[in-house]
Design a protein around this nucleic acid. Structure first.
Length: 680
DNA sequence: GAGCACTGC
């Protein structure tokens, strides 16, 4: 069985079968461009885009759609004098695509071809093609409601259905209607209607769900372009497996003993399974006969320190078979070269907000079955460089009963920030025409949070505070904490902590077999009040080292203290951004209360008023707003401590409901925060 | 007694 693609849904095919494309060593970039599957459909594609406002383009991996379509649009003059934006869900994709296309055009990045992502931008007045992260385009939308400098917007990877992509897809439909009907109706308050330039949209997606995008955009045309992918032979198990880690172990050694050389990629749901399988493989590999190929295992997940992540890219010596144990990170975010065999457990972890009316009020992070599109994507990872094999640890029936694709984020994430952003655009979330509407309970809970934070008044109208909150590139509750620091005179400390908390990776590394050493060395940062001030202490120590020592010494200090330097680096960039935003909204970010934690914690209570719990007589903690009994996460400095009241950064249900990022605060801090908090 | 993956002027 080979990977199948739902070809029948496509109305127009843009190329011939990939097998007729000869792969020969290309001596120029132009040759390579011409050999891409999409190149054969260039003229048809240009014609379709010219004739239609919106085009849906289905392109498989390797079709070249993301690099070529923007160039075709530019070369054919479709964009007129305007710019072409291409959105990406990931920052690295945006920057590396811009580099690739600039190279093809023989220009330097930031000229004709540029990019714009958070912390990093390369564009100029010459820029015509701009690769942007989807979050960045959402930010641009907040300051230019018609996105008028773009005449073509390409939404790439639309099938991933990130919250920001869905947000854009909904808004772009309205923007397009407004701009493209400009000749007929004059729009109030926006100047002469004829001044609006029309907007063309291209929605690009992998091969599933195209019909849905088409329906949303008034039955827009669907074009299809085949990918360039080597065949992957897929095997299913004959019976379902109860222990997928054990099944993966046995499958790996079957491959290792029976099949020719080639690296193996195993998809597992999380760090815990990866560590356990890593141990087992190493143990059994030692028992192999001497003359066999040896095994090199490489764990791969986002929380792994960068140095260990880098190991997956170095090629193994001959007679060594590399085995990569990865989470979903290897499904979309990184491409690992040299993979010939994929073992797919069929499992992943998914974060999902469990609303109050279903007994929740917190996030869950649980292992679940993957979707069909995920399974196909995983299998495809074996066919990047040559024919490959995919061993699915589930039956064909199980595959057939999988959901087609993941539920969009809008249906399972907190909507607080998006609701606030839409309020800033003068729109109500419940009134927006989304491709998949959110659950009403989720919208109500976001509105309630915004009201508690003071961003909305009793009539759900945006307040001045709310508008200020939206200007900070952090979660609304963090923004509220920063704004509270103006009153308490500790903006400097608060911004430092919030920067660390909003970094993408955790500051304190957790290496399970070194936990004793780690807690010993970490004692020196420990602050009695809990995790927030402890992080600040660690930051202060790092800053001392960074100020006086070399880069090497800094790295060594981080290694010795088991802290993630990448987090400090990212936090510093976020801090600078937050300082700039403070300046704009009239807050002096220099304000400091030195070592006094009381004002700092008061600010945190203001923003984390919903994220608090009181100690019960039986020694457990119970939410102040909500009815769940929660536990302090074992990684917290306050674990096993009994204090009257705590605030926490997040609540996640895994094996239990754990509060992470916890500080102890006096109960008295909760009075005067909000009317609701007083009741609690 | 222990965290899937992303993003933000």
């Amino acid at each position: 069985m080979s990977i199948h693609t739902p070809r029948k849904k496509a109305r127009i095919r843009l190329d011939d079968d990939v097998s007729s494309v000869k792969t020969r060593p290309a001596n120029t970039l132009q040759k390579q461009r011409e050999q891409l599957p999409i190149a054969r459909g260039r003229e048809a594609l240009i014609r379709e885009i010219q004739e239609n406002d919106t085009t849906i383009l289905l392109g498989e991996t390797g079709s070249g759609k993301t690099t070529q379509v923007p160039q075709y649009i530019l070369e054919s003059g479709i964009a007129g004098k305007g710019m072409i934006a291409v959105t990406q869900p990931r920052r690295v994709a945006a920057t590396s695509l811009a580099a690739r296309v600039a190279e093809e055009k023989n220009v330097s990045v930031g000229g004709l071809v540029g990019y714009s992502v958070r912390f990093d931008e390369a564009s100029s007045s010459d820029t015509r093609i701009k690769y942007v992260s989807d979050g960045m385009l959402v930010r641009e939308l907040l300051s230019d409601q018609l996105l008028s400098k773009y005449s073509v917007i390409v939404v790439d990877e639309a099938h991933e259905r990130t919250l920001r992509t869905d947000f854009l897809i909904a808004n772009l439909k309205t923007i397009q209607a407004a701009r493209n009907s400009a000749g007929d109706v004059s729009r109030k308050g926006k100047g002469p209607a004829s001044a609006l330039n029309p907007l063309k949209l291209i929605i690009m997606s992998a091969t599933l769900d195209a019909e849905k995008f088409s329906k949303f955009y008034n039955n827009a045309r669907i074009l299809y372009v085949k990918g360039r992918q080597h065949p992957v032979q897929i095997f299913h198990t004959s019976v379902s497996q109860t222990d997928y880690v054990d099944a993966a172990l046995r499958t790996f050694f079957q491959i290792h003993t029976d099949r020719p050389p080639g690296d193996v990629l195993i998809f597992l749901p999380g760090q815990e399974d990866i560590e356990s399988l890593d141990k087992s493989i190493k143990m059994y590999a030692r028992r192999l006969p001497e003359e066999r190929m040896t095994v090199l295992t490489c764990p791969m997940y986002a929380a792994l320190p960068p140095a260990q992540q880098a190991r997956i890219f170095s090629s193994a010596p001959t007679n060594v078979r590399k085995c990569i144990l990865a989470t979903n990170i290897a499904e979309t975010s990184i491409t690992i070269p040299g993979i010939k065999y994929v073992i797919d457990t069929g499992k992943c972890k998914e974060k999902r907000y469990l609303s109050k009316d279903t007994g929740g009020g917190f996030d869950t992070l649980l292992t679940r079955d993957i979707t069909k599109s995920s399974a196909m994507q995983r299998a495809g990872r074996a066919g990047r460089e040559g024919p490959g094999f995919c061993f699915r640890l589930y039956t064909e029936d199980a595959f057939n009963s999988m959901a087609l694709s993941a539920e969009p984020e809008i249906r399972r994430c907190s909507l607080t920030q998006s609701v606030l952003q839409l309020k800033c655009l003068g729109q109500d979330f419940e009134a927006v025409d989304f491709m998949d509407p959110p659950e009403i309970g989720s919208v109500i809970s976001a509105l309630k949070t915004l009201w508690l934070l003071g961003a909305l008044d009793n009539s759900k109208t945006l307040t001045t505070l709310g508008r200020q909150m939206a200007s900070f590139p952090v979660e609304p509750y963090f923004a509220r904490i920063i704004l509270a620091s103006k009153t308490h005179g500790c903006t400097s400390e608060v911004i430092d902590i919030v920067s660390l908390l909003s970094s993408s990776s955790a500051l304190f590394l957790d290496i399970s077999d070194q936990r004793d050493t780690i807690s010993e060395v970490r004692v020196k940062f420990r602050h009695a009040s809990g995790d927030h001030m402890t992080m600040l202490n660690a930051l202060r120590s790092y800053q001392e080292v960074a100020a006086s020592d070399s880069k090497g010494a800094r790295k060594e200090w981080c290694r010795q203290h088991f802290v993630n330097e990448r987090t400090f680096v990212e936090a510093t960039k976020i801090r600078d951004q937050l300082r700039q935003t403070c300046q704009r909204v009239g807050i002096d970010w220099h304000a400091s209360t030195a070592d006094n934690e009381e004002p700092v914690l008061r600010c945190f209570v203001t923003g984390l008023v919903q994220q608090s719990a009181f100690l019960q007589p039986d020694g457990t903690y119970k939410q102040t707003m909500g009815h769940s009994v929660i536990k302090i996460h074992p990684g917290s400095t306050l674990c096993d401590k009994k204090v009257p009241a705590i605030i926490y950064d997040e609540l996640v249900y895994t094996s239990q409901i754990y509060a992470r990022g916890v500080s102890s605060v006096p109960k008295s801090f909760f009075s005067n925060v909000t009317p609701v908090a007083r009741e609690a």
